[in-house]
Design a binder for these strands. Structure first.
Length: 272
DNA sequence: AGATTCGCCTGAGAGC
DNA sequence: TGCTCTCAGGCGAATC
């Protein structure tokens, strides 16, 4: 499931194939995504040149020469792949961007939780990006920030960490792994943790995300990079999806618990 | 304002 | 074999 490292992997994968290319044609086979694909999107981006790719949280941004941008979210099961023009579409291939040089950028999303949106030139921000918290690699994101923001909060630290207004990009997998690395039980009330604990957590989030990006993301079921290759970070997971198995550090069975409607795994000995 | 719940979707896996 | 049920989960919206 695409979290920050997966989206970054996709961004890096597509970038060399799309920069400087013109969008010749857009084919929308199914507009029923998280939000319906805008009728005007096809006409607006056609014949435009891609000048840059960027990422904000789990949103992928493709900037065009006019200042218009495509905003793409992979949701739960989305893939964005680089293919050769003419590659036959299969089930769930909802949107094709046919680029110059016979490059085909194809959006595929079985569960349709993803989105392909137009962010028009002139709009300084986008409603979906407006309220997002800092990037984990931004200077603003540190232990002090988490500590201050968490004061008075009763909800679990894991839910707090997964809240995109706290910090972007940390979904269920990386929240669980970061909390393990920091030695913090995921069900601790966010407001009960010390500054020191949050300093460890901020460091852990950055370490875990960085390592996952280096491994090309985590592939459990759906995720694949722009070239269709799986990620490798799943081999480095300490707790996520390992309920009942031995902790890689202390051999205690990994515990499972639902926190904020999400499956959560942790080591009852390593995490306090 | 913070916390919780709901809804959107399909595929995989379990159970019968 | 094939049906039905449950679960997975990002995240905005609605509700408490």
């Amino acid at each position: 499931m695409p979290e920050l490292p997966e989206v970054e992997t996709v961004r890096r994968g597509i970038t060399p194939h799309v920069i400087g290319r013109q969008i010749e044609q857009v084919i929308v086979r199914d507009r029923r995504l998280r939000w319906p694909v805008d009728d005007a999107l096809t006409a607006t981006v056609s014949h435009q040149t891609v000048v840059e790719t960027a990422r904000r949280g789990k949103y992928l941004i493709i900037a065009l020469a006019s200042g218009d941008r495509l905003l793409i979210h992979l949701g739960m099961s989305g893939r964005l792949r680089v293919l050769v023009t003419g590659a036959p579409p299969s089930k769930h291939d909802h949107v094709d961007f046919q680029l110059s040089g016979r490059v085909l950028l194809r959006f595929h999303d079985p569960r349709r939780f993803g989105a392909v949106l137009l962010w028009p030139a002139g709009a300084l921000s986008h409603p979906l990006l407006d309220h997002l918290g800092p990037e984990p690699f931004d200077d603003r994101f540190d232990g002090r920030y988490l500590f201050n923001r968490s004061r008075g909060r009763q909800s679990a630290v894991k839910s707090f960490l997964m809240d995109g207004e706290t910090v972007v990009g940390c979904g269920n997998i990386y929240a669980a792994e970061s909390l393990f690395r920091a030695g913090i039980r995921p069900d601790r009330p966010a407001g009960s943790l010390s500054l020191g604990a949050y300093r460890r957590l901020a460091d852990a989030v950055r370490c875990v995300l960085l390592a996952a990006i280096e491994q090309g993301g985590t592939t459990l079921r759906d995720f694949a990079g722009a070239n269709g290759e799986a990620g490798y970070f799943q081999q480095a997971l300490f707790v996520y999806g390992r309920e009942g198995e031995a902790c890689r550090r202390c051999q205690t069975p990994v515990a499972g618990k639902r926190i904020g409607q999400r499956a959560s795994a942790y080591c009852p000995r390593c995490q306090r």
